[in-house]
Amino acid sequence: MSTPTEDLSAAGVSIWLDDLSRSRIDSGNLAELISTRNVTGVTTNPSIFQAAIGNQNDDSYDAPLAALASAGADVDTAIFELTTTDVRDAADIFRPVYDATGTLDGRVSIEVSPDLAHDTDATSAEAKKLWAKVDRPNALIKIPATKAGLQAITATLAEGISVNVTLIFSLERYGEVIDAYLAGLEQAKKNGHDLSGIHSVASFFVSRVDTEVDKRLSLYRSEDAEALKGKAGLANARLAYQLFEKRFATPRAQELVAAGGNVQRPLWASTGVKDPALPDTLYVTELVAPGTVNTMPEKTLEATFDHGVITGDTITDHYEDARLVFAQLAHLGVDIADVTQVLEDEGVEKFMASWHDLQKTVATALESAPENAAENAQ
């Protein structure tokens, strides 16, 4: 009997864990998830690193923090060193997956500072700095899909650097992300880079769409509105996959593929269910299609392994259903364009807040690092 995660992998979905910490790496937990849960990659963000480094029950960062403190490292330098080390070590653990999948998977993502989300040049510069520091071919540099981020995505890909485009909410912005990716490959080709070595995923956020839409639907207090709850996120993602199919079948995209380029895979992010009234595997079992990635928090991964029911492709036969959901939302007065813009703005703000929390956490840790190191030595 196969497990649900094996079934999901067999259906063409790459399972990535949306979490990373030094203790996961050192304890062997990450390697165990590869062998027992079919995990083929990892994504990180400022919130994840803030939780890991700020975990009072985890002393795995004490020694490196003490070393950084004694070297006189400032907060941003310490964050850079700690996070790139974790990502490099995780990339090494995933290297056999990277090799076994022909470089498709085994990917580990690290994000540029959210403070740079609206600064194209600074984002591009940090992307190159992170890529050089991690120094692993199976890394991905995460860049948010803001207006400024689009140009940075193209510039980063043009340097031969693989990119995870994050914080995508709208179909319109997703179309712009695909354009930015294709432009990046075209420039990379002109710059003499081997296109086969450049990979990218487009991270389309799912559950947050339902959270915002359902909040607005609650204001209508009608049966029609209630019936639409929990449907917008799936509809949005399914139509994104249809757009993916169309755009990568164009002559422009196919010419790049013929030159060795890879398609930019859709990645379903924010797949932890936030509404307890919905099934806890909803954004996994209902978003199955070949050539996709689903990055899951551990709770969702374990729920999928325990009781997820994988029935094959649950996207491509539902395009009409998805368009109907959007039409019904529009009829009620729910402005999807406004929803997705609000979510993009909030997403950047939340990552900025987490980044600043991470800075505070590391600043405090650097101050107490010598004391902790002394206690651990006794």
Rank of each mutant, 00 (worst) to 15 (best):
330 A>T: 14
296 M>I: 08
332 L>E: 06
335 D>S: 08
328 Q>N: 12
313 D>H: 02
316 T>D: 08
313 D>W: 06
303 A>V: 05
301 L>R: 03
323 R>A: 12
311 T>V: 15
313 D>A: 10
319 Y>M: 09
308 G>P: 06
299 K>V: 13
333 G>Y: 07
298 E>Q: 13
335 D>Y: 05
331 H>V: 08
307 H>S: 14
311 T>P: 01
317 D>R: 14
302 E>C: 00
315 I>Y: 04
307 H>Q: 09
300 T>Q: 04
326 F>C: 02
329 L>W: 03
306 D>F: 02
327 A>N: 10
319 Y>Q: 08
309 V>E: 15
298 E>P: 07
298 E>S: 13
318 H>M: 05
311 T>E: 15
298 E>T: 10
302 E>D: 15
300 T>S: 13
323 R>L: 12
308 G>I: 04
291 G>H: 11
292 T>Q: 10
335 D>T: 10
334 V>K: 01
328 Q>S: 13
332 L>V: 07
335 D>I: 11
308 G>R: 10
298 E>L: 14
332 L>F: 06
294 N>W: 08
309 V>D: 13
297 P>D: 07
327 A>H: 03
310 I>C: 07
296 M>T: 04
293 V>Q: 06
321 D>Y: 12
306 D>Y: 00
290 P>F: 03
292 T>K: 03
312 G>C: 11
319 Y>I: 13
322 A>L: 11
316 T>V: 12
318 H>C: 03
298 E>R: 12
329 L>T: 05
316 T>H: 09
318 H>D: 11
332 L>P: 03
336 I>Y: 01
312 G>F: 09
319 Y>R: 07
307 H>N: 13
308 G>F: 05
307 H>R: 14
323 R>H: 07
